[in-house]
Amino acid sequence: MLIAAVVVYPAVALSRASLSRYSITGLRQGSVGAANYARLLEQEALPTVVANTVLWVAAIVLVTVVVSLGLAQLLNEDFPGRRLVRWALIVPWAASVIVTSKLFVWIYDYYFGLLNHALLSLRLVAAPVDWLGNDATVMPAMIAVGIYVSLPFTTYVLLAGLSAIPGEVYEAARVDGASAWRAYRSVTLPLLRPALLVAVVLNVIYIFNSFPIVWTLNDRNPGFAHDTMITYMYKIAFKSSLRDIGLAAALGVVNVLVILLAVVLYLRTTSWREAEA
């Protein structure tokens, strides 16, 4: 029942919408078959948006996982104040993503922003940078925020994985004369594999579907040059001259299929079943 309500109903509603024609007011004006899908492929912005999405997801997930591995390792060691650090790490996670995004808008601001202020005082840049206005820096700036909000969850998943590894296997490795790095590569990483897979899959889904960061940090920029497939879908429906629910729904269906396909492919190539064994 719950699955029917949460998954099936929206799926049916979305598919139906994607096959319909809508007036700008939202009034349904009949069925158009697959015409919305054909028009979607004609959109000039689509290749840019797809490329943005790939970069957005790949960069965030990759950097997040690598950094989280280090953080999890650190937090797994015993040191004074560990509890405090563990708590501190939760903060970016606990804060609403919209609030965090707004905060970063001010940090990145050309005139008032902390980042430019800091970089200028450290003489790392000669002149302030318009992080969110410069076409070269918008995407990296957004990706940095994406990493920031993804780190806590990922670190905790990996930390749980680490603490599940029994101490004896390390003792065995030490007896066999393995260096610390060797032990990490041959013992920790393979045993951490299930946790890593979970972290990657959940992050891919979460980042792909993430709306507030791109929406908030990119709201000043005209056109679709820095949109992902999710914000593009919203703009098609409500903020561009298209204002077309049917076309947006078609992109919505494509988005769902893309994310399902990506996850399945990923699980296949990492041979999920073997990892379980």
């Binding site: 899959v201 919203y234 994310i259």
Partner: peptide, 22 residues
Amino acid sequence: MTRALTALAALGAGATLLLGAC
């Protein structure tokens, strides 16, 4: 565990759907 993951993936997909369907 495989099944759990598939269900999670479906849930993520469901979130996209919800956004689309409003």
